[in-house]
Nucleic acid binder design. Structure first.
Lengths: 203, 203
DNA sequence: CAACATACGGAGGCTGTCTCCGTTTTTCCA
DNA sequence: TGGAAAAACGGAGACAGCCTCCGTATGTTG
């Protein structure tokens, strides 16, 4: 899986593989510290390679991000399987999956932005990844809907985008510790009170 | 209100006022066409002024945005008052206000991003504007909560951020016409089915 | 170990933000 | 009205980031 479009012939040079690995490690660290919007040149410099080398490996920010998230994909897939096997309540399962997605989307500061961009474009390394997670979300959602735990009119895509949106606002570090949880709750139950609740009915 | 920190003395030169007005008009147009992330130099050029002049009027993108939204503030305040006076159902009123906020936050492509940034910083021209709208949201929300139309645990700040978040995902032009409405509905009612609904109960 | 394929480095083109200062325009008052 | 002082203008240029190009260095293969 070093290069999916690797047609044939010789295998990649060892220094190339080494550089790729090293760049990924450094990028992971750098993005963790400074967010995904930080300078790519800084990563190249920190890794001790020239700009040309960097861009030959990752032609742009999105490609780097895709490679970086590829590594985390395994975790997320594992989490998905664990939820499927261990959680019999489909509604709880959906909740757990959405939490996992949310955590994934906040792996780095500013990550939701490129994810949203990818989720809309059809052709992109990240786009496929997102598409896959949307499908998974749909599966969990359908199960919950079958069991009456989720509203029937909701779609997986909306839920995925909703998670992205909430992750995006969270990134603002609101100086308000309650916001993250409040926003998750908001998406789960909405702001409207269920019908039949009237603490203070009109005279 | 040409310059709030204008201490005293002479009134601003007429060419300055003229340039400011013109720049605002051009910026409004340009942002409408290309989104708020587009080049500031392009606006200066389009307005026929030098970069120096531009930056003397608006030291950065946020300052320009603040001035631009200042103009729209009147509309939003008017809308708020209209809702207050015409709508007696507090829950509908809250809905209408959130719709108005949403429309305001999508006046330009990419606007939610700087708004979120402003909403978190304390000191900024936009920050005060956002703070004001959060307060208004809180008022509508409290009224709806009093009447049992909104969940008591929801806070105005969360709702404001939620609107921003939904406006942000909407901006992705999803090639899916249903998404905008679906996302609003999601925030209103959440994804979880109200207790007691069981279309397909377990055997 | 030679010759060939591959990858590297970093200079430099390009775009965008923002500053600085010499020049021009406006204002004010004699 | 005219001319000095204040205010604003214009645009060159410093700086940062993204990305490309090509001469050079380094692996790879027979």
């Amino acid at each position: 899986m070093t290069g999916s479009t690797e047609a044939s012939g010789r295998r990649p040079r060892t220094d190339k593989q080494r550089n790729r690995m090293h760049l990924l490690q450094v990028a992971e660290q750098h993005f963790s510290e400074h967010g995904v919007a930080s300078s790519l040149e800084a990563i190249a410099k920190r890794a001790g390679v020239g700009a040309g080398t960097f861009y030959r490996h990752f032609p742009n920010r999105e490609a780097l991000l895709a490679a970086l998230l590829q590594a985390r994909a395994d975790e997320l897939v594992a989490r998905r399987d664990a939820i499927r096997q261990q959680e019999r309540d489909t509604t709880v399962a959906l909740t757990l999956w959405l939490d996992a997605l949310s955590e994934w989307a906040t792996a780095f500061d500013g990550l939701p932005e490129p994810l949203r961009a990818a989720a809309t474009k059809d052709t992109s390394p990240l786009a496929l990844t997102c598409q896959g997670y949307i499908t998974t979300t749909d599966e969990f959602l359908h199960a919950a809907q079958r069991d009456g735990g989720a509203r029937p009119e909701v779609r997986g895509r909306d839920l995925f985008l909703g998670v992205l949106a909430m992750s995006w606002v969270r990134g603002a570090a609101m100086a308000d510790e309650a916001s993250p949880q409040a926003l998750s709750a908001l998406m789960r139950t909405g702001w409207a009170a269920p019908a039949g609740t009237a603490p203070n009915p009109r005279p």
